[in-house]
Design a protein around this nucleic acid. Structure first.
Lengths: 190, 190
DNA sequence: TCGCACATGTAACGTGTTACATGATTCA
DNA sequence: TGAATCATGTAACACGTTACATGTGCGA
Protein backbone atom coordinates (compact mmCIF):
# COMPACT_ATOMS: atom_id res chain seq x y z
CA UNK A 1 0.00 0.00 0.00
CA UNK A 2 1.06 3.52 -0.64
CA UNK A 3 -0.41 4.77 2.62
CA UNK A 4 0.66 2.47 5.44
CA UNK A 5 1.53 4.02 8.77
CA UNK A 6 4.55 6.29 8.53
CA UNK A 7 7.84 4.95 9.82
CA UNK A 8 9.65 6.15 12.93
CA UNK A 9 11.83 8.35 10.79
CA UNK A 10 8.82 9.92 9.11
CA UNK A 11 7.14 10.59 12.45
CA UNK A 12 10.36 12.05 13.78
CA UNK A 13 10.49 14.44 10.83
CA UNK A 14 6.84 15.29 11.20
CA UNK A 15 7.37 16.00 14.88
CA UNK A 16 10.38 18.21 14.30
CA UNK A 17 8.46 20.20 11.70
CA UNK A 18 5.72 20.67 14.26
CA UNK A 19 7.95 22.98 16.28
CA UNK A 20 9.07 25.08 13.30
CA UNK A 21 9.13 24.95 9.47
CA UNK A 22 12.49 23.63 8.36
CA UNK A 23 14.38 22.50 5.31
CA UNK A 24 15.69 19.01 4.70
CA UNK A 25 19.14 20.25 5.47
CA UNK A 26 18.06 21.72 8.80
CA UNK A 27 16.50 18.42 9.73
CA UNK A 28 19.58 16.52 8.73
CA UNK A 29 21.58 18.64 11.13
CA UNK A 30 19.25 17.80 13.99
CA UNK A 31 19.75 14.12 13.35
CA UNK A 32 23.49 14.51 12.92
CA UNK A 33 24.02 16.57 16.05
CA UNK A 34 21.59 15.22 18.59
CA UNK A 35 20.65 11.89 20.11
CA UNK A 36 17.84 11.81 17.55
CA UNK A 37 20.50 10.29 15.30
CA UNK A 38 19.40 6.87 16.47
CA UNK A 39 16.34 7.21 14.27
CA UNK A 40 18.47 7.64 11.22
CA UNK A 41 20.73 9.98 9.46
CA UNK A 42 21.98 10.89 6.06
CA UNK A 43 20.33 12.33 3.00
CA UNK A 44 19.57 8.96 1.49
CA UNK A 45 16.94 8.36 4.12
CA UNK A 46 15.71 11.85 4.94
CA UNK A 47 15.03 13.35 1.54
CA UNK A 48 13.04 10.36 0.30
CA UNK A 49 11.11 10.35 3.59
CA UNK A 50 10.24 14.01 3.15
CA UNK A 51 9.13 13.33 -0.39
CA UNK A 52 6.87 10.52 0.80
CA UNK A 53 5.34 12.72 3.47
CA UNK A 54 4.72 15.39 0.87
CA UNK A 55 3.15 12.94 -1.56
CA UNK A 56 0.82 11.70 1.18
CA UNK A 57 0.06 15.33 1.98
CA UNK A 58 1.19 15.13 5.57
CA UNK A 59 3.61 17.99 5.03
CA UNK A 60 3.89 20.74 2.45
CA UNK A 61 7.01 22.45 1.17
CA UNK A 62 7.52 25.96 -0.04
CA UNK A 63 10.62 27.27 -1.74
CA UNK A 64 12.17 30.16 0.12
CA UNK A 65 14.38 32.63 -1.74
CA UNK A 66 14.27 35.45 0.76
CA UNK A 67 17.55 34.65 2.45
CA UNK A 68 19.58 34.37 -0.74
CA UNK A 69 19.34 33.22 -4.31
CA UNK A 70 20.05 29.73 -3.18
CA UNK A 71 16.68 27.99 -3.05
CA UNK A 72 15.73 26.28 0.16
CA UNK A 73 12.61 24.22 0.57
CA UNK A 74 10.88 24.84 3.88
CA UNK A 75 8.46 22.18 5.06
CA UNK A 76 5.58 22.45 7.49
CA UNK A 77 2.96 19.90 8.53
CA UNK A 78 -0.46 20.10 6.90
CA UNK A 79 -3.65 19.91 8.94
CA UNK A 80 -3.97 16.19 8.24
CA UNK A 81 -0.28 15.78 8.98
CA UNK A 82 -0.76 17.33 12.40
CA UNK A 83 -3.80 15.11 13.00
CA UNK A 84 -1.97 11.94 11.99
CA UNK A 85 0.92 12.89 14.24
CA UNK A 86 -1.40 13.54 17.16
CA UNK A 87 -3.15 10.23 16.61
CA UNK A 88 0.22 8.52 16.66
CA UNK A 89 1.20 10.16 19.92
CA UNK A 90 -2.05 9.17 21.61
CA UNK A 91 -2.25 5.66 20.22
CA UNK A 92 -2.75 3.13 23.03
CA UNK A 93 0.44 1.29 24.02
CA UNK A 94 0.25 -2.43 23.38
CA UNK A 95 2.24 -5.28 24.83
CA UNK A 96 3.75 -5.75 21.38
CA UNK A 97 5.02 -2.17 21.44
CA UNK A 98 6.78 -2.88 24.71
CA UNK A 99 8.13 -6.15 23.40
CA UNK A 100 9.66 -4.79 20.24
CA UNK A 101 9.07 -1.10 19.59
CA UNK A 102 10.67 0.57 22.56
CA UNK A 103 12.45 2.98 20.27
CA UNK A 104 9.16 4.15 18.91
CA UNK A 105 7.71 4.58 22.39
CA UNK A 106 10.46 6.83 23.63
CA UNK A 107 10.35 8.80 20.39
CA UNK A 108 6.64 9.35 20.90
CA UNK A 109 7.15 10.47 24.46
CA UNK A 110 9.84 12.92 23.42
CA UNK A 111 7.21 14.73 21.36
CA UNK A 112 4.54 14.85 24.03
CA UNK A 113 5.31 18.50 24.68
CA UNK A 114 3.52 19.29 21.43
CA UNK A 115 0.29 18.01 22.97
CA UNK A 116 0.46 20.46 25.83
CA UNK A 117 -1.81 18.28 27.93
CA UNK A 118 -0.61 16.89 31.24
CA UNK A 119 -3.38 14.30 31.32
CA UNK A 120 -2.14 12.60 28.17
CA UNK A 121 1.36 12.41 29.54
CA UNK A 122 0.12 10.78 32.70
CA UNK A 123 -1.96 8.31 30.77
CA UNK A 124 0.97 7.41 28.55
CA UNK A 125 3.24 6.78 31.51
CA UNK A 126 0.63 4.82 33.43
CA UNK A 127 -0.12 2.47 30.56
CA UNK A 128 3.56 2.15 29.80
CA UNK A 129 4.37 1.17 33.37
CA UNK A 130 1.57 -1.37 33.37
CA UNK A 131 2.58 -2.95 30.09
CA UNK A 132 6.20 -3.10 31.18
CA UNK A 133 5.12 -4.97 34.30
CA UNK A 134 3.12 -7.39 32.17
CA UNK A 135 6.09 -8.07 29.98
CA UNK A 136 8.37 -8.43 32.98
CA UNK A 137 6.08 -11.19 34.21
CA UNK A 138 6.62 -13.00 30.92
CA UNK A 139 10.35 -12.61 31.20
CA UNK A 140 10.39 -13.88 34.79
CA UNK A 141 8.40 -16.92 33.72
CA UNK A 142 10.92 -17.58 30.98
CA UNK A 143 13.72 -17.26 33.49
CA UNK A 144 12.07 -19.75 35.79
CA UNK A 145 11.81 -22.21 32.92
CA UNK A 146 15.48 -21.66 32.16
CA UNK A 147 16.62 -22.39 35.68
CA UNK A 148 14.57 -25.55 35.72
CA UNK A 149 16.79 -26.77 32.88
CA UNK A 150 19.95 -26.16 34.85
CA UNK A 151 22.19 -29.20 35.00
CA UNK A 152 20.24 -30.96 32.25
CA UNK A 153 21.16 -31.36 28.60
CA UNK A 154 19.20 -28.35 27.36
CA UNK A 155 20.88 -26.07 29.87
CA UNK A 156 21.19 -22.46 28.79
CA UNK A 157 24.84 -21.35 28.81
CA UNK A 158 25.92 -18.84 31.42
CA UNK A 159 26.59 -15.98 29.01
CA UNK A 160 23.21 -16.32 27.35
CA UNK A 161 21.62 -16.33 30.79
CA UNK A 162 23.45 -13.17 31.74
CA UNK A 163 22.39 -11.48 28.52
CA UNK A 164 18.85 -12.43 29.39
CA UNK A 165 19.24 -11.02 32.91
CA UNK A 166 20.36 -7.82 31.35
CA UNK A 167 17.21 -7.70 29.28
CA UNK A 168 15.23 -7.95 32.49
CA UNK A 169 17.29 -5.14 33.98
CA UNK A 170 16.53 -2.93 31.01
CA UNK A 171 12.82 -3.41 31.42
CA UNK A 172 13.08 -2.72 35.12
CA UNK A 173 14.78 0.53 34.18
CA UNK A 174 11.86 1.38 31.92
CA UNK A 175 9.44 0.77 34.75
CA UNK A 176 11.43 2.88 37.18
CA UNK A 177 11.72 5.67 34.66
CA UNK A 178 8.02 5.72 33.91
CA UNK A 179 7.10 5.88 37.59
CA UNK A 180 9.66 8.52 38.40
CA UNK A 181 8.41 10.58 35.48
CA UNK A 182 4.85 10.28 36.73
CA UNK A 183 5.85 11.53 40.14
CA UNK A 184 7.71 14.40 38.65
CA UNK A 185 4.70 15.58 36.67
CA UNK A 186 2.48 15.26 39.71
CA UNK A 187 4.79 17.45 41.76
CA UNK A 188 4.79 20.07 39.05
CA UNK A 189 1.03 20.23 39.12
CA UNK A 190 0.97 21.41 42.71
CA UNK B 1 28.71 -6.99 -2.64
CA UNK B 2 27.54 -10.52 -2.25
CA UNK B 3 29.82 -11.12 0.71
CA UNK B 4 29.48 -8.23 3.12
CA UNK B 5 29.50 -8.98 6.84
CA UNK B 6 26.58 -11.16 7.85
CA UNK B 7 23.66 -9.48 9.57
CA UNK B 8 22.69 -9.92 13.20
CA UNK B 9 20.12 -12.48 12.19
CA UNK B 10 22.68 -14.46 10.23
CA UNK B 11 25.12 -14.43 13.12
CA UNK B 12 22.37 -15.48 15.48
CA UNK B 13 21.60 -18.45 13.24
CA UNK B 14 25.26 -19.30 12.90
CA UNK B 15 25.64 -19.17 16.66
CA UNK B 16 22.65 -21.36 17.33
CA UNK B 17 23.93 -23.92 14.85
CA UNK B 18 27.20 -23.89 16.72
CA UNK B 19 25.60 -25.65 19.68
CA UNK B 20 23.86 -28.31 17.59
CA UNK B 21 22.89 -29.04 13.97
CA UNK B 22 19.34 -27.91 13.45
CA UNK B 23 16.73 -27.43 10.75
CA UNK B 24 15.21 -24.12 9.73
CA UNK B 25 12.10 -25.07 11.58
CA UNK B 26 13.99 -25.80 14.78
CA UNK B 27 15.64 -22.42 14.54
CA UNK B 28 12.35 -20.70 13.94
CA UNK B 29 11.04 -22.19 17.14
CA UNK B 30 13.96 -20.81 19.10
CA UNK B 31 13.21 -17.34 17.79
CA UNK B 32 9.50 -17.71 18.35
CA UNK B 33 9.77 -19.01 21.91
CA UNK B 34 12.71 -17.21 23.44
CA UNK B 35 13.90 -13.65 23.88
CA UNK B 36 16.01 -14.22 20.77
CA UNK B 37 12.85 -13.19 18.94
CA UNK B 38 14.11 -9.61 19.02
CA UNK B 39 16.55 -10.51 16.30
CA UNK B 40 13.79 -11.52 14.02
CA UNK B 41 11.22 -14.14 13.43
CA UNK B 42 9.20 -15.76 10.74
CA UNK B 43 10.14 -17.88 7.76
CA UNK B 44 10.38 -14.95 5.40
CA UNK B 45 13.57 -13.86 7.12
CA UNK B 46 15.05 -17.10 8.38
CA UNK B 47 14.94 -19.34 5.32
CA UNK B 48 16.48 -16.75 3.01
CA UNK B 49 19.14 -16.06 5.65
CA UNK B 50 19.99 -19.75 5.83
CA UNK B 51 20.18 -19.90 2.07
CA UNK B 52 22.57 -16.95 2.03
CA UNK B 53 24.76 -18.54 4.68
CA UNK B 54 24.83 -21.74 2.65
CA UNK B 55 25.67 -19.92 -0.55
CA UNK B 56 28.57 -18.17 1.20
CA UNK B 57 29.61 -21.55 2.56
CA UNK B 58 29.37 -20.54 6.19
CA UNK B 59 26.97 -23.38 6.90
CA UNK B 60 26.15 -26.62 5.13
CA UNK B 61 22.88 -28.51 5.06
CA UNK B 62 22.18 -32.16 4.82
CA UNK B 63 18.80 -33.74 4.25
CA UNK B 64 17.85 -36.09 7.02
CA UNK B 65 15.31 -38.84 6.34
CA UNK B 66 16.07 -41.08 9.28
CA UNK B 67 13.27 -39.83 11.51
CA UNK B 68 10.54 -40.15 8.91
CA UNK B 69 9.85 -39.82 5.22
CA UNK B 70 9.39 -36.13 5.70
CA UNK B 71 12.64 -34.55 4.60
CA UNK B 72 14.30 -32.19 7.03
CA UNK B 73 17.36 -30.20 6.22
CA UNK B 74 19.84 -30.11 9.08
CA UNK B 75 22.40 -27.32 9.01
CA UNK B 76 25.78 -27.14 10.68
CA UNK B 77 28.51 -24.48 10.48
CA UNK B 78 31.44 -25.12 8.15
CA UNK B 79 35.01 -24.57 9.28
CA UNK B 80 35.06 -21.12 7.71
CA UNK B 81 31.63 -20.45 9.21
CA UNK B 82 32.98 -21.22 12.66
CA UNK B 83 36.00 -19.00 12.01
CA UNK B 84 33.89 -16.08 10.80
CA UNK B 85 31.66 -16.45 13.83
CA UNK B 86 34.62 -16.50 16.17
CA UNK B 87 36.11 -13.45 14.53
CA UNK B 88 32.79 -11.67 15.00
CA UNK B 89 32.67 -12.52 18.69
CA UNK B 90 36.20 -11.28 19.27
CA UNK B 91 35.98 -8.15 17.15
CA UNK B 92 37.05 -5.11 19.13
CA UNK B 93 34.15 -3.02 20.42
CA UNK B 94 34.08 0.47 18.94
CA UNK B 95 32.41 3.62 20.15
CA UNK B 96 30.12 3.35 17.15
CA UNK B 97 28.99 -0.08 18.30
CA UNK B 98 28.05 1.39 21.65
CA UNK B 99 26.34 4.31 19.98
CA UNK B 100 24.12 2.35 17.68
CA UNK B 101 24.65 -1.41 17.75
CA UNK B 102 23.85 -2.34 21.31
CA UNK B 103 21.64 -5.17 20.10
CA UNK B 104 24.55 -6.69 18.29
CA UNK B 105 26.79 -6.38 21.33
CA UNK B 106 24.47 -8.23 23.66
CA UNK B 107 23.87 -10.86 21.00
CA UNK B 108 27.60 -11.38 20.73
CA UNK B 109 27.98 -11.67 24.45
CA UNK B 110 25.19 -14.22 24.65
CA UNK B 111 27.30 -16.50 22.48
CA UNK B 112 30.53 -16.11 24.40
CA UNK B 113 30.05 -19.50 26.01
CA UNK B 114 31.04 -21.03 22.68
CA UNK B 115 34.50 -19.53 23.08
CA UNK B 116 35.07 -21.28 26.36
CA UNK B 117 37.71 -18.77 27.33
CA UNK B 118 37.30 -16.64 30.45
CA UNK B 119 39.95 -14.18 29.29
CA UNK B 120 37.94 -13.17 26.22
CA UNK B 121 34.87 -12.61 28.32
CA UNK B 122 36.77 -10.37 30.67
CA UNK B 123 38.27 -8.42 27.80
CA UNK B 124 34.87 -7.94 26.18
CA UNK B 125 33.36 -6.63 29.39
CA UNK B 126 36.30 -4.36 30.16
CA UNK B 127 36.28 -2.73 26.74
CA UNK B 128 32.51 -2.48 26.82
CA UNK B 129 32.55 -0.71 30.18
CA UNK B 130 35.21 1.67 28.95
CA UNK B 131 33.39 2.53 25.73
CA UNK B 132 30.14 3.01 27.58
CA UNK B 133 31.87 5.49 29.85
CA UNK B 134 33.24 7.32 26.85
CA UNK B 135 29.82 7.58 25.32
CA UNK B 136 28.31 8.66 28.61
CA UNK B 137 30.74 11.55 28.62
CA UNK B 138 29.40 12.61 25.23
CA UNK B 139 25.85 12.39 26.47
CA UNK B 140 26.62 14.42 29.57
CA UNK B 141 28.23 17.09 27.43
CA UNK B 142 25.12 17.21 25.29
CA UNK B 143 23.00 17.51 28.38
CA UNK B 144 25.08 20.40 29.62
CA UNK B 145 24.59 22.15 26.29
CA UNK B 146 20.87 21.57 26.55
CA UNK B 147 20.55 23.09 30.00
CA UNK B 148 22.47 26.11 28.83
CA UNK B 149 19.61 26.74 26.40
CA UNK B 150 17.01 26.71 29.14
CA UNK B 151 14.81 29.77 29.14
CA UNK B 152 16.00 30.78 25.69
CA UNK B 153 14.24 30.37 22.35
CA UNK B 154 15.93 27.12 21.41
CA UNK B 155 14.96 25.51 24.68
CA UNK B 156 14.50 21.76 24.54
CA UNK B 157 10.99 20.78 25.68
CA UNK B 158 10.64 18.93 28.96
CA UNK B 159 9.48 15.64 27.47
CA UNK B 160 12.36 15.50 25.04
CA UNK B 161 14.71 16.23 27.91
CA UNK B 162 13.26 13.41 29.93
CA UNK B 163 13.57 11.03 27.01
CA UNK B 164 17.19 12.04 26.79
CA UNK B 165 17.67 11.47 30.52
CA UNK B 166 16.29 8.02 30.02
CA UNK B 167 18.87 7.36 27.35
CA UNK B 168 21.54 8.27 29.88
CA UNK B 169 19.96 5.91 32.39
CA UNK B 170 20.06 3.09 29.90
CA UNK B 171 23.75 3.53 29.31
CA UNK B 172 24.39 3.70 33.04
CA UNK B 173 22.60 0.36 33.26
CA UNK B 174 24.93 -1.04 30.62
CA UNK B 175 27.94 0.11 32.60
CA UNK B 176 26.63 -1.36 35.83
CA UNK B 177 25.83 -4.62 34.14
CA UNK B 178 29.26 -4.93 32.55
CA UNK B 179 31.01 -4.30 35.86
CA UNK B 180 28.79 -6.63 37.81
CA UNK B 181 29.37 -9.32 35.21
CA UNK B 182 33.13 -8.85 35.49
CA UNK B 183 32.98 -9.29 39.23
CA UNK B 184 30.91 -12.38 38.88
CA UNK B 185 33.40 -14.02 36.56
CA UNK B 186 36.26 -13.10 38.83
CA UNK B 187 34.56 -14.74 41.79
CA UNK B 188 34.02 -17.89 39.81
CA UNK B 189 37.67 -18.12 39.02
CA UNK B 190 38.61 -18.45 42.68
C1' DT C 1 41.05 30.71 -6.65
C1' DC C 2 40.82 27.12 -3.54
C1' DG C 3 38.21 24.79 -0.40
C1' DC C 4 34.54 24.35 2.72
C1' DA C 5 29.84 24.61 4.27
C1' DC C 6 25.35 25.00 2.34
C1' DA C 7 21.68 22.44 0.01
C1' DT C 8 19.36 18.81 -2.53
C1' DG C 9 19.07 14.94 -4.42
C1' DT C 10 19.57 9.87 -7.07
C1' DA C 11 20.83 4.81 -7.86
C1' DA C 12 22.12 0.25 -6.50
C1' DC C 13 21.71 -2.94 -3.20
C1' DG C 14 20.34 -5.91 0.47
C1' DT C 15 17.27 -7.07 3.96
C1' DG C 16 13.12 -7.57 6.78
C1' DT C 17 7.91 -7.75 6.80
C1' DT C 18 3.72 -9.55 5.48
C1' DA C 19 1.18 -12.70 3.31
C1' DC C 20 0.59 -16.56 0.75
C1' DA C 21 1.53 -21.50 -0.99
C1' DT C 22 2.35 -26.34 -0.47
C1' DG C 23 2.42 -30.78 1.21
C1' DA C 24 3.33 -34.50 4.77
C1' DT C 25 2.23 -36.49 9.34
C1' DT C 26 -0.17 -37.19 13.56
C1' DC C 27 -4.05 -37.44 16.46
C1' DA C 28 -8.86 -37.02 17.79
C1' DT D 1 -12.13 -37.22 7.90
C1' DG D 2 -10.68 -33.07 9.49
C1' DA D 3 -7.68 -30.11 12.15
C1' DA D 4 -3.38 -29.07 13.97
C1' DT D 5 1.39 -29.29 13.61
C1' DC D 6 5.55 -30.30 11.12
C1' DA D 7 8.41 -28.36 7.51
C1' DT D 8 9.93 -25.48 3.75
C1' DG D 9 9.59 -22.10 1.04
C1' DT D 10 8.32 -17.75 -2.44
C1' DA D 11 6.75 -13.00 -4.01
C1' DA D 12 5.68 -8.20 -3.43
C1' DC D 13 6.91 -4.39 -1.15
C1' DA D 14 9.03 -0.68 1.34
C1' DC D 15 12.71 1.02 3.70
C1' DG D 16 17.50 2.24 5.10
C1' DT D 17 22.53 2.24 3.83
C1' DT D 18 26.19 3.52 1.13
C1' DA D 19 28.04 5.97 -2.29
C1' DC D 20 27.85 9.17 -5.72
C1' DA D 21 26.38 13.62 -8.26
C1' DT D 22 25.62 18.48 -8.61
C1' DG D 23 25.79 23.13 -7.88
C1' DT D 24 25.85 27.73 -4.93
C1' DG D 25 27.86 31.10 -1.83
C1' DC D 26 31.38 32.62 1.17
C1' DG D 27 35.65 33.43 3.42
C1' DA D 28 40.94 33.07 3.34
Amino acid sequence: MSSGTPTNLEFALLGLLHSAPQSGYDLRKVFAETAMGNYSSSPGAIYPALKRLERRQLIEGEVDRTVSLRPKKMFRPTTTGAAVFREWLLREISLEDVRRNLDELILRFAFYSTLDDAGSTRHFLEVLARRVDEYLQELLTQRAMMSRLEGSAGEVPIHARMAFEFGIEQYRAWGRWARRAMKRFEEERE
